[in-house]
Design a binder for these strands. Structure first.
Lengths: 201, 201
DNA sequence: ATAAAATTTAATCATATGATTAAAATACTT
DNA sequence: AAGTATTTTAATCATATGATTAAATTTTAT
């Protein structure tokens, strides 16, 4: 085991940082371990020395990113003391900020989950089943006629889809990155209102 | 050129059909030409004989799929004679049906566009700029205070996101494929109502 | 300062992968 | 049926890629 001095952390972290960038940008299959090594400014062997294999390094990164995409959602949904509207507001604001700082994450995480759902089945220990959350109960009480999962799809779609569809929308509308940035910020307040409207529709 | 008898079409189509399946399922980078050949029940060399290269075959397939994802949208948006609500209804019904039959398409197309936006910039000759469409004009008239692109994101998000988020939602909610299928059908009517509610919010 | 431990590198390996080639098999034309 | 064109295959090539090894360098402890 190579783990005592301080500089270790630095080199190990350099590799992880490079891996974050390359993996999230290109996905597992399109990523070459040499790209990561180059990006980190280190030799290829070093990557295998520290992380044993591409697969192992990937698992570290994807877990991080999944946590970033999902970690904050469970506690908000479980909270018995907040209203539906407050939960939506919290989730929208938090996610849009997070995704503006990490726009590659949704396509990366959702793509890799689709590639290998079995691997993540064990990982997602949101054992505190979301279907039993306060949020689901509140949705069922508010709209007994609509499956709560619809509203989960709606809220996540309103928040996440723009980040996934951005490259396409840029192509077909010619909208500029600066404008997109502004739109994303606007959505933080709009989504709350839109979801409320859908709940009353 | 190998193109006279009738059986040609059959073999060529067998390869294309296999390519559709493997490419859309795994994406370009994770696809091995040998997988396609095996899936088609033919020899690897045959693939290069007919399509010259993996890249060329891929371009044929991705163009097909992009057309499936985008081809129907432009004429609906351009139609001066239909209302916003009618457009939303048409698009929702058409896309949900199309995506239920081709659930891999959104992640595939949006992923590949992100990988190589430049390649598709030329391809998307929706020169009939969507920002000048009747739909955009109608949205601006109805809600001068909201950028129409918001509603494009919303509508596409409501329609497409469930297909992209499905694997994740299955993991965190345990919802079964049969139930998902039912939900997708329900959304065809719900989305129309939800969008109307958002427009009035 | 010296020895041991940890880190980094260059070189190399084994396999995977896209592509090509030349020959065999099949279909088509007359 | 014979000859030509087309289709298909098995074998092979060249390169890319993940991983390993052994040696060199640097760091740490005494």
């Amino acid at each position: 085991m190579a783990k005592t001095s301080k500089s270790d952390l630095s080199t190990e972290e350099k590799i992880k940082e490079a891996a974050r960038k390359v993996f999230t940008q290109k996905g597992y299959a399109a990523t070459r371990t040499r790209d990561i090594a180059d990006e980190a400014g280190i030799n290829l062997a070093l990557l295998n020395y520290y992380f044993r294999s591409k697969e192992k390094l990937f698992e570290i990164i994807i877990l991080e990113k999944m946590h970033l995409l999902l970690g904050r959602i469970a506690p908000v949904l479980m909270d018995e003391k907040t209203t539906i509207e407050q939960k939506v507001e919290q989730i929208a604001e938090h996610y849009i900020d997070t995704l503006m700082a990490n726009p590659d994450i949704p396509l990366f995480v959702l793509g890799e989950i689709k590639t290998n759902p079995a691997k993540f089945a064990t990982l997602i220990n949101t054992k505190t089943k979301i279907v039993d959350s306060a949020f689901f109960k509140q949705l069922k009480a508010r709209r007994p006629d609509v499956n709560p999962i619809h509203f989960v799809f709606n809220i996540l779609g309103l928040i996440i889809f723009p980040f996934i569809g951005k490259p396409l929308l840029q192509l077909i509308t010619g909208v500029k990155p600066a404008e997109i940035h502004m739109l994303m910020n606007e959505r933080k307040t709009h989504i709350k209102i839109w979801v409320e409207a859908m709940l009353n529709a």
